[in-house]
């Protein structure tokens, strides 16, 4: 109750709330495609890889959005290049490239600025969101949602059966990099809320919970967005009330929801599965 009063009272909390709701939605939506394409590791990699871009943007005094998208997409291309042109497997290539980008980012930031900035970029601080950050997040969010809405058909085919897509003439490589660009944008939008290190949790955990709840992609996307939003609000509440790190609180809220779904999901939940097996066995005695 205090939290709700505080939301009405304090503008910084309103901004925090709106920003984290948008982050919950877009992470959930993009996360569905990430996990269905088996790219969870790629999600982690790209989110880390925006760091040098953010650092260089600070250095040049430009908006960090541009630097972040640039270094994120460049890393995605480098990962693809190494795995396609050598016997190095995709996950190995991911490991090499994103750690390199991340390390470069850390060095640039430590050369440049105080370590508090680094801390905030890495772990987020939603209660310090400025108006301009909020508008960037809203703008990115709308672009991402519009892109998924408009290209839903293409994203669905290439996620389910990429070869079919290629066979009827879809530019599957381009769609892959398009998705990587959206992923980078989502990471940038989430910088303030959950931070670079934990973005991957917001991409994967709500989507994974949604995956256990439905057998249709369209429904999964809405559920993932919903679970993302609930996690964001719950996390923000705990972060505000008990003065906890916002990103970590949001991620743990998502984890708690995942565990609930993992146990109690009507069709794929552990508990119901066990109960069904038991009932069946009992009926055969």
């Amino acid at each position: 109750m205090e939290f709700i009063e505080a939301v009405f009272q304090y503008e910084f909390l309103q901004k925090a709330l709106l920003t984290s709701i948008m982050v919950g939605i877009i992470c959930g939506v993009i996360g569905c495609f990430i996990i269905l394409r088996g790219m969870a590791l790629m999600g982690d990699a790209i989110s880390h890889a925006v760091l040098p871009g953010v650092a260089i943007s600070y250095m040049l005094g430009i908006n960090f959005f541009f630097g972040a998208v640039f270094s994120g997409v460049l890393t995605a291309i480098a990962i693809g290049f190494v795995s396609q042109n050598s016997r190095i497997k995709h996950d190995t290539s991911i490991g090499i490239m994103f750690t390199a980008a991340f390390a470069a980012g850390i060095i640039i930031i430590t050369l440049l600025k105080s370590s508090t900035d680094l801390y905030h970029i890495l772990f987020g601080n939603v209660l310090a969101v400025r108006s301009s950050d909020m508008w960037i997040t809203m703008g990115i969010g709308l672009v991402v949602l519009a892109a998924v809405y408009l290209f839903y058909k293409e994203l669905l085919v290439t996620s389910f059966d990429e070869t079919m897509g290629a066979a009827y003439g879809l530019p599957v490589r381009m769609i892959h990099y398009f998705l990587m660009t959206l992923l980078t944008m989502v990471t940038v939008a989430s910088l303030q809320t959950v931070g670079i290190v934990l973005v991957v949790a917001m991409l994967i955990t709500p989507a994974a919970a949604a995956y256990l709840l439905t057998d249709r992609l369209s429904i999964m996307i809405f559920l993932a967005a919903g679970i993302g939003v609930i996690s964001s609000i719950t996390g923000l509440y705990f972060s505000f009330t008990y003065n906890l790190a916002s990103g970590a609180a949001i991620v743990l809220a998502a984890t708690a929801l995942f565990i609930l779904v993992f146990l109690f999901s009507p069709k794929h939940g552990l508990l119901w599965k066990m109960l069904k097996v038991r009932k069946k066995r009992a009926s055969l005695v």
Partner: peptide, 17 residues
Amino acid sequence: IAYVPQRNDIDWDFPIT
């Protein structure tokens, strides 16, 4: 052209009816 891929190229757990 219609192409039907080899069975093991498909993720059968994909959320699609």
